[in-house]
Nucleic acid binder design. Structure first.
Length: 505
RNA sequence: GGGGCGUUAACUCAGCUGGUAGAGUAUCUGACUUUUAAUCAGAGAGUCGCGCGUUCGAGCCGCGCACGACCCA
């Protein structure tokens, strides 16, 4: 790479070599900080400016140098560890000529250990006056310019470690993500759900309609698919008698990337025996509003400049009602299939040959309603046609006992009372396979074992999936899914050197 | 898949109707023992994403490609 030979890198190497020549271990493994940086401010709370801590206690801390102001015979710098940031003062007279000479070769970015005593500067900033310095890891690359920070979004995603070093907001987002996932586990665990792990590699991809990634097991000489959803395995556990189960793990979909789609994304799915989708609406609004309150201290948040109120209760409406009330569609159109298809055509929606009225309504909903649902809204009574795994409504078999949750115009959760009639399930699978459509990659196949499991008897149940990445986006005000995934998928970096001709395709 | 946008020093960015490249930060050297975007003086640093074309001459114009971000499907 051309970047390897720049002047700055060369100078950093030379400096490191010079330090090594002075007998300094550039990658010392012997310094163990006794204190975390965040412990120090309370200790120095009562210090006056320009005074030293009278206890004369020696603290020991370590961290990365983030700023550096050197003078002839002294210097100030800030170091950060995972708990905070503090200023260190280094003075030639305190350290002696030899040690100070090695200090002269320290740079922003180095990871160092410090022992020293607390004092306050004349402007009152709590600082550590160093009497021992240890190099723990010499940095050979410069950090991004400090005033603007790291603004190049590609570097942010590609070199997340640099982003995490220099962007506190990014660190906060990922800490919040961890907290959100922890709270989900706590909430479900408190309600008697057990967390399970089901296969990531499926012989038959199922539980959703999506293009799978394919892989191959050599010893068994068989193709496998990275899972597009864990649903069918979690339901097998309901058959087995685990009445409340959940899984938080990755799903993989071999489709496009966008601000809302990453090929691997994290999904929460949970199943509760003897519950209905009504119970899950209650659970969902409690879960999400509670987590929001825990991590943000309020249920009224802003997402990308739009106010969103997550305080329960949340709106609940059927898809037909949403089409009428939010989408502004005349109820007479919904009642008449000819008029319905005419409207679909008028809106420029192209439907497949075999698409029925349910598919038509769903398309209209996506076009006219979704983006208008800002505050959390449960949309219920999804057409059976688009819900192959959901239980039919007992009064109206054209719709299912299903809801999707929309917040800020985006789908955040999908749930339904589960279909547990093996005969109906087999027929729906068969219908799906027959109607496969022209997309070869959407791999519908009969999951015989799943149907067999249902034949043993699955309790009535309701199940739900919540996109964790999207939930984190909402609660951290992140505009892109890449902002909440530590290492989002990017095309491989092109190294400047390798410029072989590869233009043809 | 389509549309326009971006890619210039390590980082953040300027760069006029086409005339051989600029700033701030960072780095290096010197001065400097309470600074905090330290200051002052000086210096070095670039395959202008890649390729082809137009032109006497291309960072700038045209075409293609790569990567990225956005919008649309």
């Amino acid at each position: 790479m051309s970047k390897e030979n720049t002047q700055v890198l060369k100078q950093r190497r030379e400096k490191a070599d010079a330090l090594a020549d002075l007998g300094v271990n550039l990658y010392s493994n012997s310094f163990k900080p006794a204190n975390r940086i965040k412990e120090l401010p309370p200790k120095g709370e009562n210090l006056e400016a320009e005074t030293q801590d009278e206890t004369n206690y020696t603290y020991s801390i370590s961290g990365r140098i983030m700023t550096m102001r050197k003078f002839g015979k002294a210097a100030f710098f800030h170091i950060t560890d995972s708990s905070g940031k503090i200023q260190v003062y280094v003075k030639k007279a305190d350290l002696g000529d030899d040690v100070f000479a090695t200090f002269k070769k320290w740079d922003v970015g180095d990871i160092v250990g410090i022992e020293g005593k607390l004092f306050k500067t004349k402007v009152g900033e709590l600082s550590v006056r160093a009497d021992k310095l240890v190099m723990i890891s010499k940095s050979l690359r410069p950090l991004p310019e400090k005033f603007h920070g790291l603004t190049d979004i590609e570097t942010k995603y590609r070199q997340r470690y640099v982003d995490l070093i220099v962007t506190p907001e990014s660190r906060d987002t990922f800490k919040k993500r961890v907290e959100i996932v922890r709270l989900v586990r706590e909430f479900l665990s408190n309600r008697g759900f057990m967390e399970v792990e089901t296969p990531m590699m499926h012989p038959v991809p199922g539980g959703a309609t999506a293009k799978p990634f394919r892989t191959h097991h050599n010893a068994l000489d068989m193709d496998l698919y990275l899972r597009i959803a864990p649903e069918l395995y979690l339901k097998r556990l309901l058959v087995g008698g685990f009445e409340r189960v959940f899984e938080i793990n990755r799903n993989f979909r071999n489709e496009g990337l966008s601000t809302r789609h990453n090929p691997e994304f994290t999904m929460l799915e949970f199943y509760q025996a003897y519950a209905t989708y009504h119970d899950l609406m209650d659970l969902t609004e409690e879960l999400i509003s509670w987590i929001c309150d825990e991590v943000n201290g309020t249920m009224e948040i802003e997402y990308q400049g739009t106010k969103v109120n997550l305080a329960p209760p949340w709106k609940r409406m059927t898809m037909d009602a949403a089409l009428i009330e939010v989408g502004g569609i005349d109820p007479a159109i919904l009642a008449d299939n000819d008029k319905l298809f005419a409207l679909v055509e008028e809106k420029g929606i192209k439907l497949e040959e075999q698409a029925g009225p349910g598919k038509a309504k769903t398309e209209l909903f996506e076009l006219l309603v979704e983006e208008k649902l800002i505050d959390p809204t449960f949309v219920t009574a999804y057409p059976t046609e688009v819900s192959p795994l959901a239980r039919r409504n007992e009064e109206n078999p054209d719709v299912t006992d299903r809801f999707e949750l929309f917040v800020t115009g985006r789908e955040l959760a999908n749930a339904f009372s589960e279909l547990n009639d093996p005969v109906d399930q087999r027929q729906r699978f068969e219908k799906q396979i027959a109607e496969k459509g022209d997309d070869e990659e959407i791999h519908h196949e009969m999951d015989e074992d799943f149907v067999r499991a249902l034949e043993y008897g699955m309790p009535s149940a309701a199940g739900e999936g919540i996109g964790i990445d999207r939930l984190v986006m909402l609660l951290t005000d992140a505009p892109s899914i890449r902002d909440v995934i530590l290492f989002p998928h990017l095309k491989p970096e092109v190294l400047k050197q390798s410029k072989k001709q590869k233009g043809d395709k």
